[in-house]
Design a protein around this nucleic acid. Structure first.
Lengths: 132, 132
DNA sequence: GCTTGACCTCAAGCTGACTTGAAGTGGCAA
DNA sequence: TTGCCACTTCAAGTCAGCTTGAGGTCAAGC
């Protein structure tokens, strides 16, 4: 089994060593051993980091991620909860879709004030019921 | 023209007064006048706040939002840049879609270690080329 | 054996986005 | 005209998520 130095993990994942140490400190990833003082990471950590990157972009906190797929690899959470998280991501996808259309609209619509443009308002209204 | 007190804006938008003052301080929204000491917001601010909420969930910083649709209402940015932002949101949508499928997979796949499951890896690989 | 350089720890610092607290203001109803 | 209470300012505090710096370690190559 070939393990990875923190520097190698950093290079391959694009996550800085300081961030990796931080992730380990909060229990989001784990090194399997030490070589001298140096942490040795299993190759799977690269997959985990990819997943962590996705979750970050979905707005999950490190704490939530730790709960979702703890330090050891995988889910600590009941299937129901995971499906709920998936649904949450689904809602965020809908929001972002509305935002993307809104941005395209702003880019294309020649109206002076977008706030008065009906199609603009409609786009925002799609985003959530909280919008007047 | 009927203007809104900060408390009313807060109640209707779900954004706390302190956050609204903060947004005004950084130039993301603007009050039109004062009634005594009290800020008076135009009703459009509710639309702006909806948009701000979307952008937050897309991961844009307040600074970026200020650049995108300044204090006065709308875009300070060339159309090209706005379209680029829309594309950026599009990429994030793709990531989140991959994440949603991944979460569903974790919830459903009975394999003991997801990191070794080929379909799990495939999902992560969809998320970005940075993944091994 | 010595140097080098990539790692280590731990504490402190930083950024973004607010929140909190203390002390003050002023419109409005009684 | 008094008092209430929702507002005001400003400075300081908080939280997440890292980053930085000082000082130390140690495996490997010369």
């Amino acid at each position: 089994m070939k393990f990875l130095d923190i520097g190698e993990v950093a290079e391959r994942s694009g996550v800085k060593p300081s961030a990796l140490r931080h992730y380990e400190a909060v229990g989001l990833i784990a090194s399997v051993s030490r070589h001298g003082l140096r942490r040795q990471f299993p190759p799977e950590v690269l997959l985990q980091l990819a997943l962590i990157g996705l979750c970050k972009s979905a707005g999950f906190s490190l704490r939530e991620m730790t709960a979702m797929f703890g330090r050891n690899g995988m889910p600590d959470l009941p299937r129901e909860t995971l499906r709920a998280k998936a649904a949450e991501v689904g809602r965020r996808i809908d929001e972002l879709t509305a935002l993307r259309e809104t941005l395209r609209h702003i880019a294309d619509c020649p109206a002076p004030s977008h706030l008065e443009c009906p199609s603009f308002r409609k786009l925002l209204a799609q985003a959530g019921p909280a919008v007047a």
